[in-house]
Design a protein around this nucleic acid. Sequence first.
DNA 1: TGTGACCGTGACATCGTTGTCAGAACCGGG
DNA 2: CCCGGTTCTGACAACGATGTCACGGTCACA
Lengths: 332, 332
Amino acid sequence: MREVAALAGVSVKTVSRVVNQEAGVSSAVRERVSSAVSRLDYRPNLAASNLRRAGARTGLIGALVQDLSNSFSAGVLRALEDTARAHRTGVLATSLDEGVERERELVHDLVTRRVDGLVIMPASTRHDYLVSELRTGTPAVFVDRPPRGVDADSVVVDNASGARSGTEHLLARGHRRIAGLFHLTQIVTVQHRIDGFRSAHEAFGLVPDPRLVVTDISSAEEATRVVDRLLALDDPPTAIFAARNLLATGAVRSLAQHGLRRSVALVGFDDFPLADLLDPPLTVVRQDVARIGRTVGELIFQRIDGDTSPPRHVVIEPTLVVRGSGEIRPTA
Amino acid sequence: MREVAALAGVSVKTVSRVVNQEAGVSSAVRERVSSAVSRLDYRPNLAASNLRRAGARTGLIGALVQDLSNSFSAGVLRALEDTARAHRTGVLATSLDEGVERERELVHDLVTRRVDGLVIMPASTRHDYLVSELRTGTPAVFVDRPPRGVDADSVVVDNASGARSGTEHLLARGHRRIAGLFHLTQIVTVQHRIDGFRSAHEAFGLVPDPRLVVTDISSAEEATRVVDRLLALDDPPTAIFAARNLLATGAVRSLAQHGLRRSVALVGFDDFPLADLLDPPLTVVRQDVARIGRTVGELIFQRIDGDTSPPRHVVIEPTLVVRGSGEIRPTA
DNA sequence: TGTGACCGTGACATCGTTGTCAGAACCGGG
DNA sequence: CCCGGTTCTGACAACGATGTCACGGTCACA
């Protein structure tokens, strides 16, 4: 900046005025400064500017998601990004891979970076550690999983209701032996999905066979092996409820290997690209990722703009998308 | 920081020493300062610190990708993110959606933010505008599409060779009327894929029927309509080469609607999750996204660490993944 | 006891920028 | 020609941190 000032023969303050398009600079001087700026490839230092300006923003929000390459995370992030762009803000996104310790470190790091807001798809189950972080004034919004131990906005889907409707869909078609595939039980949303799975059974006066309820499956490959095993039972399931997108794809792989894709019903939780192109097309409980991402964006920017009303907890209802795989009748 | 110093009864410089774990502070003082830090929830201001420190890094790299929610972009980004984490660096990712103007603005913005490096999956075809941006010393690496008008590292796949091997795969199985679906011709990689498609034909002493070569298709929906139209021709294609993941899925939708998934052969360019679960499973030319992302990460961090050797252009060979859809024989 | 080395600490300048305020130059009106 | 009011410009301090250097105190040793 000093160099620009020297080249243009003015003070640094005048350069600052020109760069920030402040009024009250003669056009002759403005011209000289502008040409000096471009001749020297001068770029104002945003950090220094933010330092000096009162209550300036960094124009950055931090987003901690489960896994960038998972279509759910990516979809939410994409919608969030679009909202952020409208507010001239960048998104600093990181995958957590269910790493609890990593979550803590990253939050600390992001707060230290002075991001304007945090969007957290948490790996941890207790978020007390956030209290001191948020005292610094950084607003946070939780996505997909609700906050515990700290008061913050959240956007989640009604997991119990989604799992319930998916399961009831199978029960209503006569299935009585339904396998339930679930992710890590320590995750609250997974617990809710299990609850929904059970309450659907109760509504039909049934109790799920414990051998058919498998939890803590964390990859598609593991889901495939689990289904392989279930299909080998004396009385195998006639339908499968896979409570997460990766588990559904794992289940499809197993069914395909056994040539049972058209005989065993399957309902998944989470829609994903191409689910409609499978054969049979996959019936799923869909979470509207774009809407979730947009809602998160709206909440966080309201907070950034100074909204201090009590935390809001937005619950988005998932919808059942009927495509074929969930309508297969039980084999006698 | 002043408050911490006051509370601990020391100077700010000593607080700085403790925070940065510098040697030469008595443990008593260190103790007092640490407790003051946690009592006040003090967080050092990274921006101010960077301002003072000579040649400090922001610990940020900017990544401009085509579309975060596309599995190709997301996969590359995920691998890049992992590399960046190893270097204690965050990734500021943005979708370009083929927006040329947006690319320019974002690059300018990121350079102004003083990111340590830029990773660009460019929307534009000429990158002269980068010359002045890069003069500031920010290194850049191009992904997926090569730089033109500026000297910078790049990581691309051999598009011509990939398209050629995919097309030859179909020709070798007796197909003579092969439809080619391509994205925007202004994109260099698309031109190369077209070249590969043609040269495969030449190798068989053939010339593609111009009516079967459709370019500038930019969405899955449009691809579906195009295939609908091609199938309605008097002499419809017996095989389809879809030179991008979205175009392949669009093609599958059309084939499905016409009940032709098992009669018309299909080879796609770009692998994606679940391609193996389609029926028939999709034969594709696969780009190793993880390897691309890792390579990009290695290049950019070498530059950040001061490597000033001439630009390197890494070409990654795509591989043909045979699954079924590409092995369908032509119908008589 | 004096001396030099070393240790712990703080004062001050500085990074690049902008808010504040004051001064210089110019204008029109009396 | 003087005066008050604009208009334009610059000097200076400050944002939050750290590099430099100098200071006072301990300690070992001559």
